[in-house]
Every structure is written in structure tokens, then in C-alpha cells.
Design a protein around this nucleic acid. Structure first.
Lengths: 132, 132
DNA sequence: ACACTTTTTTAGAATCATTATAAACTACAT
DNA sequence: ATGTAGTTTATAATGATTCTAAAAAAGTGT
């Protein structure tokens, strides 16, 4: 199996459910954004057996911790995740409530001049809100 | 009263509760970040009478709609607000779960090269996550 | 001041995403 | 094959937020 090694190397047992969730998340042409609810529906469509909601939550969080998924900082009652874990930014269409990827080339270099003692920058994320 | 006019001009009746919440939010040396829960505690400390939680929610949302408060896009189970409504960005200390303002001078100019047809940019917000 | 309309406040209930629980199940090392 | 540590699962619990509908307050005209 394609993802068995990847999971084992991360200290995650390659269970049937995790491998199936890997397929739904990573066997795609393009990366995509999702909420747990959306992912849950996608899984129902693509997989015969049922995977419980708790497992989907657990798995998504495990993958996020391992760096296979990223949370997108946005104010919404649902948490958004991204299968694109490269450094990149987002448009957020306020009307449609839709996220759009910004390629790195779409954003000029970002210069954070201030430093905080004893802390280092883990990530820099830009959210560009769009209106009509 | 200091805030009576401001409220009336926004089409909000200057009720006792709203005026008191204005005092807590805006009668301060510095701007600050808060969750509804934190604000609720702050109000309890500073004000004699009780203001119901529903009113705090209503008022904060009304103020946000009028542009007197800003929501901070961040992944948290609680929504964060900012009394600093000038364009600016944030550090987020992952360990302490604390937001820190970045002055505009702390960040070099941001160049968003991509355009989306029929949409205009409403805001550009940067979240810089900090780790140890 | 009074009557009337509209807005606001309020306590409590409802909602809904997420997390916790604890029992059944599975992967994997020995 | 057996043991054990890690997983899955259905369900319950949690907790932030929103809804509801009745009471209170604000605004308006008289």
C-alpha cells in the first residue's frame, strides 16, 4: 500500500481507516480545502464501509500534528484544513464563503521586522478577504 | 455621555448596556484583544449591574458590523476580537496562546499580485505563529 | 406627561462543532 | 497464538454561540 510506509514512519499504525482517509485526502490531482463535515461526506461517497466521525476527527488531527495537513486560520464556526502543506496564502471570498489558494508567486516577499525574544517564527500566513 | 453620539450616528440606540460596554472596550490607554468570555469577566469587574451574555454577544457583533471592533482570524474554539481596528497584523504565541500586535511598521509592504475578477480586496491580515 | 411603536435586553432553551468515554477491536512484537 | 498498546466506535458530554419570546427601555408624536 502506497501510504503504509508513510504512516508507519510517522509512528501511526496503518489501519484500514487511516489508509482510506489517506486516499481521499491525498490521491487527488489538486490539493483542496475542507471542513470535517465536508470530508465526512467525501469519505461516504468514496468509501464503501463507514468510518465513524470520531475517527475522522482523530485522524485529521493526527495528520495535522504530523504535518500532512494544515489548519487554515480563519474565523468560521467550522475549522478549515488544507491538504496543501507548502507555505502559501489564501483569498477568502466573504460572499461565497470560499477559500482560494494564493500561489507563493502571487505574493511579494514578506518582511517581518520585529523579533520576540526566545521565540522563532513557525509560519507566516496571510488571509486576503475579498468583497464584491 | 462620550459615546452617545457615536452610537446614535451608527443607528444604534445608546442604551445603558451599550454605553457601559463602550467604556470597558474603549476607555483604555491601549487597545486589546479579547474573547467574549474574557470580555464578560472584564465587564463583571468594572460594572455594578449585570449585563446578560446575550447582550454582550449582540453588542460585540453590532460593534463589529459598524467597524468599532475587528475579528481576528485565528484557529481557536473561541472567537477573538480586537479593539484596534487600524490595519495591522498579529503574532500568535502558540505556547502561551497569546496574541501580540504587530505595528504596521513591523511588516514590510505586502504585494498581492493576483486579482480575482469582480472582487476587491477588503483586508489583508497576517498571522505570524511563534514557537520556542 | 402619556400613548404607541420599535428596538433592545434578558433568561433560558436550542444548536452544533468538537471532545471525552469506555468498551470492542486490531496491529504487531514476542 | 498471546499479550499489550494503539485504534475505532457509538454515544454522551461539553461549550461557544444563536435563538426565542416576553419584559423593559428608547424614541416619537401628541
Amino acid at each position: 500500500m502506497k501510504y503504509t510506509e508513510k504512516l508507519r514512519n510517522s509512528g501511526l499504525r496503518p489501519t484500514k481507516q487511516r489508509l482510506q482517509i489517506c486516499e481521499v485526502l491525498f490521491d487527488t490531482e489538486k490539493t483542496f480545502h475542507f471542513t470535517i463535515n465536508e470530508l465526512s461526506l467525501k469519505i461516504k461517497k468514496q468509501i464503501d464501509n463507514k468510518i465513524s466521525l470520531a475517527t475522522i476527527y482523530n485522524t485529521v488531527h493526527a495528520f495535522e500534528k504530523k504535518g500532512y495537513l494544515k489548519q487554515i486560520p480563519i474565523n468560521s464556526n467550522e475549522t478549515y484544513f488544507d491538504t496543501n502543506v507548502c507555505d502559501h496564502h489564501h483569498f477568502y471570498d466573504l460572499k461565497k464563503e470560499k477559500l482560494i489558494d494564493l500561489e507563493n508567486a502571487d505574493v511579494g516577499p514578506i518582511d517581518i521586522k520585529r523579533k520576540i525574544d526566545g521565540k522563532k517564527i513557525k509560519s507566516v500566513e496571510i488571509l486576503v478577504k475579498l468583497e464584491d
